[in-house]
Design a protein around this nucleic acid. Structure first.
Lengths: 271, 271
DNA sequence: AATTAAGTTCCAAATAGTGGAATAAATAGC
DNA sequence: GCTATTTATTCCACTATTTGGAACTTAATT
């Protein structure tokens, strides 16, 4: 549940809003309401969205009518459940996840720790799958979550295989949020580590996103780098010592390799 | 995984499209692409959407740019991963689910079978949670899925507490899809069973949606009936005999009752 | 190389969105 | 219980976006 409230994991570039006309304006609103962690009243949204009252009112009305937002009896707006239906289909059909699933399970068996699969979207990592120990997992608590790329193992691994020009496009747009004392807070230190990761072929996260959580990750990419993600093994710092993290480097890399090999076969080599 | 491909679980009423202007048109497209079970090419969508080429092209472009759809190198459109981020937030914050979760777990412990929690949205049941045995659940395979109301235990239980006028609004819009030989295929037989269910306070599903699957469900509703859902225990027909189903009726009803009581406390009595 | 199909761009006309202001409804204060 | 104040909703002349037919470009096929 904890990491669910990461105050701001920008799902994509912010500033220069994309030119998607009416849709773009509505998506900004949807983002605003879904990223808040309590239902918002009309006036709250009015303040955040700076738009004229009339306009905002109609826009919210449309979003509600489409089931993307829900309006309760007390006049508060919350994310709508239609989003779940869309998402379940998006997830069920995702080819990358389907290919990776058995390899994640194998890695989980080998390490006994939680395994994550993530994809780079804009400057965020979207978690696509998770294999966790023992009890039934509250999956939505992690899957689908967008987390920043600069403070997660998968994120930093992904950045390490991003072409130079794409990195330079992305860096200026980052808003560094100091989650812990170990979080990167500027592009320079991040870039320096990215270079080390690129050379080593694996990334660590030592309590950069969440206190007490360690992680080791390896990147996954398509030949043309149009697709970039990563796989990681995560666990509590007291259990995943530096020695143990080091020990999982190869298994994680091997898993990433196997997934990439299978992608090349199933999705064709060029991409 | 199986029920994930239910060819058509209409997420809401079809025919008379709601008046949500530009957004409505785009949502129809998004629905179209997410409900297909393979990625669609431009021409495929052109045929399904009957819209002019130019218009469709721009609309798809906007959806892609916003991350709601993804366009691969071969020119095929698939659901976008941004949908996952929205959904994970929608799910994580859903109060009904949060309230129900411990009661579902208790029911699972008592019965040892799979427990589902669903909400009525339009003429579909959207599954909000699932507690399943043993191994880590592939949650998205069921959670978030929209299934028809007329052939699921939760769906029929929900209909049984829907006010008369709402039922009559809903029935004509239903498209009965014969999933098995036991599926209701017309409003009359459905309505007759709904009345029995209303009197009894519980619903059975005996292989109406999926062959070999039995289920017993009880409705959950807010005082003003603005919110309607249900809880169910599901399992293979060979194990859940008619006798055993009968035996779970009370536990399922008690669970529903407890959830409703807690909703009244936490969300206020009127709704 | 020619032919067909698939995808992309263009722009005047039609439509839908905008935003300020007025109205209505709900809350709080007296 | 009435008034003041905050909050939410409706209205409509003005403006911006969407529309859709056709022309154009690119890729695949014969």
């Amino acid at each position: 549940m904890s990491s669910s409230g990461d105050s701001m994991a920008q799902a994509d570039d912010k500033g220069a809003s994309r030119d998607t006309g009416t849709l773009g304006k509505l998506m900004v609103l949807l983002d605003l309401v879904t990223h808040a962690d309590v239902p918002l009243r009309f006036t709250d949204i009015l303040a955040l969205a700076n738009q004229p009252r009339g306009t905002l009112h109609r826009q919210l009305g449309h979003l509600v009518e489409e089931g993307l937002l829900e309006l309760d009896a007390e006049g508060r707006y919350a994310p709508g459940l239609r989003l779940l239906d869309f998402a379940s289909r998006s997830w069920a059909r995702n080819e990358f996840r389907l290919i990776a699933a058995p390899h994640l399970a194998a890695l989980h068996r080998e390490t006994g720790e939680t395994v994550h699969l993530g994809v780079l979207r804009g400057s965020s990592i979207i978690y696509l799958d998770k294999v966790e120990g023992h009890q039934p997992v509250r999956m939505y608590s992690q899957i689908g979550n967008a987390s920043p790329c600069y403070c997660t193992g998968v994120g930093k691994a992904a950045l390490s295989v991003l072409p130079r020009d794409k990195i330079e496009e992305l860096l200026p747009g980052l808003h560094f949020n100091r989650f812990t004392s170990a979080t990167h807070v500027n592009a320079e230190s991040l870039l320096a580590e990215i270079r080390e990761i690129a050379a080593a072929g694996h990334a660590f996260d030592r309590e950069e996103h969440e206190a007490g959580i360690h992680c080791v990750a390896a990147p996954i990419w398509s030949d043309d780098r149009s697709f970039i993600g990563g796989v990681s093994v995560t666990g509590p710092a007291y259990r995943l010592s530096m020695e143990l993290l080091q020990e999982w480097v190869v298994p994680v890399q091997v898993t990433a390799r196997k997934i990439m090999d299978e992608m090349r076969i199933r999705l064709g080599p060029r991409r």
